[in-house]
Structures are given as structure tokens and as C-alpha cells.
């Protein structure tokens, strides 16, 4: 765990040597970006009427959207973890032709506009789609279902986990794995006892990233899964439709989502910090 323990020390050294002036300068240079990131959030908080906000919690559409957002993002994050980890390990350890091509392909959903992902998914899994036509014959209809929401989220969010996990696995010293193998550990034991624990914090960070991306997913969802309260209407869709119907409602929803996202991100970071300091 040398990698982690050295990091805070470097920061300390830098702090001791740096002049206060440099810190002040750095702070001033950081201000525009900080302000830019924080002002819209403050504007949102300032515009929300507390009474409307409280009333929203009793609104069944809101609780439906919230519940749906959390169950679907949990599913898509889990799907990314289960199916993405082997792929990440392969990319981190494997040396094979076309590796860099594969790597780029995985990055593609990260840069594509989500609407492109939505159209692509619809013409793949829609009932006239490349795969969807067969699935439809077999009696499985994907588009406009909760499953479609999970698929849309996984498509755009899983690459964030995979990319981070590749870096996490690559950061684990191969010598440690070799040593364990020499001592008689099976490949599975090496992976679960050595590689996974060492890469763990990075993998968790990647999972949080992909979860956050899934929670915000809008474009692919509305195109591929459509908008139906309780079935496919996640929080971002409810906020968008709310924006057109009732701005107060949309603002309250936005604030609820903001607060919950902040709380969960912060919680995960706190857990990570605790784990790091414990080692």
C-alpha cells in the first residue's frame, strides 16, 4: 500500500516549501472555476421555495421517479461491475493484437452524445432492431421497459468504471501476483486475495463515477426507454418534463437530486478515506 501512504507525505512537503504567496496566487487562479461550478448550484438553492420542496415529498410521481432512479442505477452499476471487471482485467493484463482498438471502442460511449447512444440502442434492441427483432419473436420486448432504462444507463456509464478499473489493475505490481502464485495460490486466489484488494479503492472510485453517470442519464433513456411514470421515468426525465409543466416542481426535484447525489458521493468518499487510513 506504499502507493497510497506516500501521497499525503508529498503534499506535506509541498506545503512546507511553498510560500504563502504561491498559495494565495493559486487560490485566486482557482476562484473562477470554483465560482463557475458553484454558482448554478447556489442559484438552484436560492430559487427553490421551501414549502413547495416539502410538498414534493408527498407527490407519488416524485417518489416513483426517485425509487426508479435508485433501483435502475443500482442494477446498471452492478451490471457494469459484474460484466466490466473481466474486461478491465483483460485490458490491463492482456497483450494481444487490437488491444488499443478495443480500448478506444470502450471509450466511445463516453464521448458520444447520449442521444446517439439512445438511437443506436433503439435500432439494436427495438422490436425492428438488429437483435430486438429476434428477441421480439421470442416474446421479449425491451424498448419502453425498465430493462431498457438499465441497458441505456449501462451503455453510457459502464465505460467509466471499466476505464478506471483498467488503471486500477495496471497499478497492481505483477511481482506480487507472481509471488503469491509461486507460493501455491490458484489464479482465482491470486485475483481475489491480492489483485482485488490492492486495486479495490480505485475500482470503488470507478464504480462511483459510473453510478453518478447512470444517475444523470437522460438522452439515451428518453429515446430508448421512453417516458412512462413508474416504469421508465427516472429523475432526470421527471425534471425535464417538470421543467415544461411546472418550473417550481422541476426546481424542487433538481434540488432533491442534487442533495442526494452530494450525500452519496460524500459518503463513499468518507468510506474510502477510512479504508485508506486503516491500511
Amino acid at each position: 500500500m506504499e502507493r497510497i501512504t506516500t501521497a499525503p507525505r508529498t503534499v506535506l512537503v509541498w506545503r512546507k516549501r511553498s510560500l504563502p504567496l504561491t498559495t494565495v496566487g493559486l487560490l485566486l487562479a482557482s476562484l473562477p472555476m470554483l465560482a463557475y461550478l458553484l454558482l448554478p448550484l447556489l442559484a438552484l438553492i436560492a430559487r427553490v421555495n421551501p414549502a413547495t420542496l416539502v410538498a414534493q415529498f408527498a407527490n407519488p410521481e416524485i417518489s416513483q421517479a426517485l425509487g426508479l432512479s435508485f433501483t435502475t442505477t443500482a442494477c446498471s452499476t452492478l451490471l457494469g461491475l459484474v460484466c466490466g471487471t473481466p474486461l478491465a482485467y483483460l485490458l490491463a493484463r492482456g497483450r494481444f493484437p487490437g488491444r488499443s482498438l478495443l480500448d478506444t471502442l470502450i471509450e466511445l460511449p463516453m464521448v458520444l452524445p447520449p442521444s446517439v447512444a439512445g438511437i443506436a440502442l433503439l435500432i439494436t434492441f427495438g422490436r425492428r432492431g438488429l437483435v430486438g427483432a429476434q428477441l421480439n419473436e421470442a416474446g421479449l420486448s425491451v424498448a419502453f421497459t425498465t430493462l431498457a432504462v438499465v441497458l441505456a444507463q449501462t451503455f453510457v456509464a459502464a465505460p467509466f468504471y471499466i476505464k478506471t478499473a483498467v488503471a486500477g489493475f495496471a497499478g497492481v505490481e505483477r511481482e506480487l501476483e507472481y509471488a503469491a502464485a509461486t507460493d501455491g495460490a490458484s489464479p482465482w486466489q491470486v485475483f481475489t486475495r491480492i489483485t482485488l484488494p490492492l486495486a479495490g479503492p480505485v475500482l470503488l472510485g470507478g464504480l462511483v463515477m459510473s453510478w453518478a453517470r447512470a444517475l444523470g442519464e437522460f438522452g439515451a433513456t428518453i429515446i430508448f426507454a421512453g417516458n412512462f411514470p413508474g416504469r421508465t421515468q427516472t429523475m432526470p426525465l421527471a425534471i425535464y418534463l417538470g421543467f415544461e409543466m411546472n418550473l417550481d416542481l422541476a426546481l424542487s426535484l433538481a434540488l432533491i437530486m442534487l442533495a442526494l447525489s452530494f450525500f452519496i458521493l460524500w459518503l463513499v468518499k468518507a468510506i474510502l478515506r477510512q479504508r485508506v487510513s486503516a491500511t
Binding site: R3, E107, A167, E173, R213
Partner: peptide, 26 residues
């Protein structure tokens, strides 16, 4: 071994920011 990890995380964050933005106005 640290630097590639940190770099990858930063890159991921950056891409997350880019990927997230169009969703709002797509």
C-alpha cells in the same frame, strides 16, 4: 506506478464531465 492511475482517474473525471454535459441539453 502511481502516475498512470492518477492520470487515468483525472482523464475519467474529465470525460465524465464532458459526457455528462450534453445530457442536460441534448
Amino acid at each position: 506506478r502511481r502516475s498512470p492511475v492518477v492520470f487515468a482517474l483525472l482523464l475519467t473525471l474529465l470525460l465524465a464531465a464532458c459526457g455528462g454535459a450534453p445530457a442536460a441539453q441534448s
